[in-house]
Design a binder for these strands. Structure first.
Length: 228
DNA sequence: AAGTACCACAACCGCCACCGT
DNA sequence: CACGGTGGCGGTTGTGGTACT
């Protein structure tokens, strides 16, 4: 694609999984901020701005991924009417959404509203629906990959601190309670690839036992169906 | 089947405000 | 006060994919 190291020695273009891992490692160790130290402290060949952007828009753990909901859309419309293009201000009212995400959403959905309204509305709606379905699938795939990365880093860490199975069980309880299903599924999946079958069984049993507490039978069945 | 239009998203760029020295 | 570093913000571009013609 022609992207690589440029003049000042900084890499540009799409981020690799390894770069993401280094950036996550930096934030874990030093927290957010001081982005220009990233290259020096973890050896990432990216400038501070690029690191900050990648973290804020893509790697932050509290990001909500997936479709903008109709409710969120109405908030965006309302706040844009009030604030104009102050995306960061609007984003503060939508937890888990970034200014970049909202900005992009606005551009593609509302900026060309005038042109769009002149089209056949039926045709346009059907088109949009098909596209949304396709993109939902793409996002799910993408989320799986991201979750898998998280799992790998989690397992990397626990390699050094012995009670890995106990940690995994704690994590399951936490993720199940917070409805973080993608992560939960990937976590067990990821764990299964590096450990023996009995450990994996214990984790699944742990998940099933949560049923009484959360009443999540359907949810768990979906997880298991996906897993097999 | 090939070319084109369109969309969503990631990433970059330039500007500016803030802050410490 | 001036200056440089840093980070936030909004605008823009590039890319990869599907739908349409």
């Amino acid at each position: 694609m022609g992207w690589d190291v440029i003049g000042g020695g900084w890499r540009k273009g799409p981020w690799t999984a390894e770069e993401d891992r280094l950036l996550i490692q930096y934030v874990k160790l030093h927290g957010e901020g001081r982005w220009n130290n990233v290259s020096r402290l973890v050896g990432l060949k990216r400038n501070g701005k690029s690191c900050r952007l990648r973290w804020v828009n893509y790697l932050r753990p509290d990001l909500k991924r997936g479709q903008i909901t109709p409710h969120e859309e109405s908030i965006i419309l309302e706040l844009h009417a009030r604030w104009g293009n102050r995306w960061s201000t609007i984003a503060r009212s939508l937890p888990g959404r970034t200014d970049n995400e909202i900005k992009n959403y606005w551009r593609t959905h509302f900026k060309k509203k005038g042109e769009a309204s002149s089209e056949n509305p039926e045709k346009r709606r059907a088109h949009l629906l098909r596209r949304q379905q396709f993109q939902l699938q793409q996002r799910e795939k993408q989320e799986d990959q991201i979750n898998m990365k998280k799992v790998i880093s989690l397992l990397d860490e626990s390699e050094n601190s012995v009670p890995t199975l106990a940690q995994m069980k704690q994590e399951i309880i936490y993720r199940n309670a917070s409805d973080d299903l993608g992560f939960l599924y990937s976590m067990i999946n990821g764990y299964a690839t590096g450990h023996d079958a009995s450990s994996e069984d214990i984790l699944w049993e742990c998940l099933w036992n949560l049923d009484d507490f959360h009443g999540n039978i359907a949810k768990q069945q979906t997880l298991v169906a996906n897993f097999h």
